[in-house]
């Protein structure tokens, strides 16, 4: 015979909740907001001497992605007029640096990360680099995959 109607069978949700919170914590810790500024579809050139650069405590760099056809993207959006974009970004950065007390801003203390596809023609890369140089940028980080990373599946 069946038991009383008032008795309800409830699963113990506590272990499941524990596990889900652990997973949430894991994903929160590994989430990479900087990845949003990178175009992961690019096939970067492979170099043995390329080393990851740590940016902790340094000024946030300007990241420019250059596709094979020479088009530029930044922060996930295509940039139709790269010249206007660089001028605007430089102005914003200069204002920010001035507000922090920087005086000599002829040479920008902020690096530019050039993430160009390995098949992009030099003419296009040179155009972007020249634009940055004309706006005072001198420090450049040319992105590449290390040989070990490129071999990884």
């Amino acid at each position: 015979m069946s038991g009383g109607n008032a008795d309800s069978v409830e699963p113990n949700l506590t272990p499941m909740l524990d596990m889900v919170f652990q997973l949430v914590t894991f994903f929160m810790l590994v989430i990479n907001f900087k990845g949003a500024s990178m175009d992961l579809s690019l096939k970067l050139p492979v170099l043995s001497s390329a080393r990851p650069v740590e940016w902790h405590g340094k000024k946030e760099p300007l990241v420019l992605n250059l596709k094979e056809d020479g088009s530029v993207t930044a922060f996930g959006s295509p940039i139709p007029d790269i010249e206007k974009f660089v001028v605007r970004e430089t102005r914003v950065m200069r204002d920010y640096l001035k507000s922090e007390g920087a005086t000599n801003l002829d040479e920008m203390p902020i690096p530019v990360i050039v993430r160009a596809d390995g098949r992009a023609p030099f003419a296009q890369v040179n155009k972007v680099i020249k634009l940055c140089q004309n706006n005072g940028f001198r420090q450049f980080q040319l992105s590449a995959m290390s040989a070990a990373e490129a071999k990884a599946p």
Partner: peptide
């Protein structure tokens, strides 16, 4: 959890070649 799984994109470890590019 669903949000984090859907937005999770493991970015590859990239290297950089630091150069000073004067005009």
């Amino acid at each position: 959890l669903t949000f984090f799984i859907l937005t999770f994109r493991p970015s590859p470890v990239e290297g950089q070649l630091a150069v000073n590019l004067p005009p």
